[in-house]
Simulated scan of single mutants.
Amino acid sequence: MKSIVITGASSGIGRATAEVFLDAGWQVGLIARRADVLGEIAKTHDNATALPCDVTDPDTMKTAFDSFAAKAGGLDALFNNAGMFGPSAPIDEVDIDAFDQVIGVNVRGMFIAAKLAFAQMRRQDPQGGRIINNGSLSAHNPRPGSICYTTSKHAITGMTKSLSLDGRAFDIACGQIDIGNARTELVEDLNARILAENPEATLMPTMDVTEAARSVLHMAEMPPEANVQFMTVLATKMPYIGRG
Rank of each mutant, 00 (worst) to 15 (best):
P126Q: 09
R130H: 09
I147E: 11
T157K: 10
A155E: 08
N134A: 07
Q120M: 05
M110N: 13
A139K: 07
A117I: 00
S164P: 03
R130N: 01
G167R: 10
S138H: 14
D166A: 13
R130E: 01
D166S: 06
G128W: 10
D166L: 12
L116D: 09
F111C: 00
N133F: 06
F118I: 00
R130S: 02
F118A: 01
Q120S: 08
I177Y: 10
A173G: 10
Y149T: 11
T151S: 05
Q124E: 09
Y149N: 12
P126Y: 07
M121I: 02
T160L: 03
I177V: 15
D171V: 12
S136T: 12
C174V: 00
D178Y: 07
S146Q: 11
G175K: 11
Q176S: 04
G128H: 02
A169I: 01
P126I: 08
A169N: 07
Q124T: 05
C174G: 01
L165D: 00
L137C: 05
A114R: 13
K161R: 15
S162F: 03
A173F: 04
A113E: 03
S162P: 03
F118V: 00
H140T: 15
A139Y: 03
K115L: 05
Q127W: 04
G158W: 04
T160D: 09
D178P: 05
G158V: 07
R122V: 00
F170H: 15
D125H: 06
T150V: 11
L137V: 08
G158L: 01
T160A: 11
N133T: 10
I172K: 09
T160F: 06
R168F: 12
G129Q: 07
S152Y: 08
M121H: 08
M159R: 07
D178F: 08
G129S: 03
Q120D: 08
S146P: 05
R122F: 00
N141T: 15
Y149I: 06
M121D: 09
A155S: 13
S152R: 14
R143C: 03
T160H: 09
P142Y: 05
G129N: 06
A173L: 08
A173N: 13
G128P: 11
A139T: 03
S138M: 11
R143M: 12
G158Q: 05
L165E: 00
C174D: 00
A114P: 11
I147Y: 08
L163M: 14
L163S: 11
A114N: 10
T151D: 00
I177Q: 14
R123D: 12
K153R: 12
G128E: 06
H140S: 12
P144C: 13
N134I: 08
Y149M: 08
G175C: 08
G145D: 14
Q124D: 07
I177M: 13
L163G: 12
P144W: 14
H140K: 15
R130V: 02
G129R: 13
R123M: 02
L116T: 04
A113D: 02
